[in-house]
Design a protein around this nucleic acid. Structure first.
Lengths: 114, 114
DNA sequence: GTCCTAATACGATAAACATCGTAGTACGGC
DNA sequence: GCCGTACTACGATGTTTATCGTATTAGGAC
């Protein structure tokens, strides 16, 4: 019984992305770490979930990736057994110009102070 | 028994303000509404809690104001029976340049689309 | 002093969240 | 077909959150 040919994941459309959800998604240290990691990749590039070392269990990691995806912060597509993740920079910048950048640089600033 | 002469409220010092806490504080629609309201006042100006019409009970309002204060987003000082609230623009801008502005304009943009 | 207004504190409750471990599915290689 | 890797789904648990109503405190006006 095939559940789906190339299993599709639900992403909010650009217009459906809510600022509150994005801010909430970014307000967790683990998720912020994921976003920082993805932001350091080239434009449009992605990384598998397993490429990021988080100090939490596998299932919790899955949970955080889902929160990010459902908030519209990242996109996820299956590629074989891996799931590639990428920042939805274009959509976020179009909806909320400068927001992602200032969160990332705020994070960098805070991180540097510590 | 006086609890305090001019009751003082606990605010985080500038250096103690955490990005995650700020983002979390801003990720609630009610609190975002408060911040938007305060942002529309002049620099350094404040407003009493009661000056803002929220569709929630008094005690819940108190709760949200406290979350904002403890995150370092607003300052609160007693002034007679009222409690004056003001955005901590200076501190936020110093720590996270551009963050508050982009959140506010993201909120304005989203609000305009609706 | 009494009274009114502004805001809080105190429970209480129901929902959401972060976390985990285990069991399971999907894909690719052999 | 079998096996390993990558990720998920499920169920559980403890914590935090948003919400409320009621009782209370603090200050100002009288």
């Amino acid at each position: 019984m095939s559940t789906s040919p190339t299993r599709a994941l639900d992403h909010p459309e650009r217009e459906e992305i809510r600022l509150e959800a994005v801010l909430h998604a970014l307000s967790d240290p683990m998720r912020l770490q994921v976003v920082r990691f993805l932001a350091e990749l080239g434009e449009g590039e992605g990384a598998a979930c397993s490429a990021i070392e988080l100090a939490i269990s596998k299932s919790t990691t899955t949970h955080h990736f889902r929160v990010l995806r459902e908030a519209g912060v990242i996109s996820q597509v299956y590629q074989g057994t891996a799931k590639m993740n990428a920042l939805r920079r274009g959509d976020l910048d179009a909806l909320f110009p400068g927001l992602l950048e200032s969160v990332l640089s705020a994070d960098a600033a805070q991180r540097q102070r510590a």
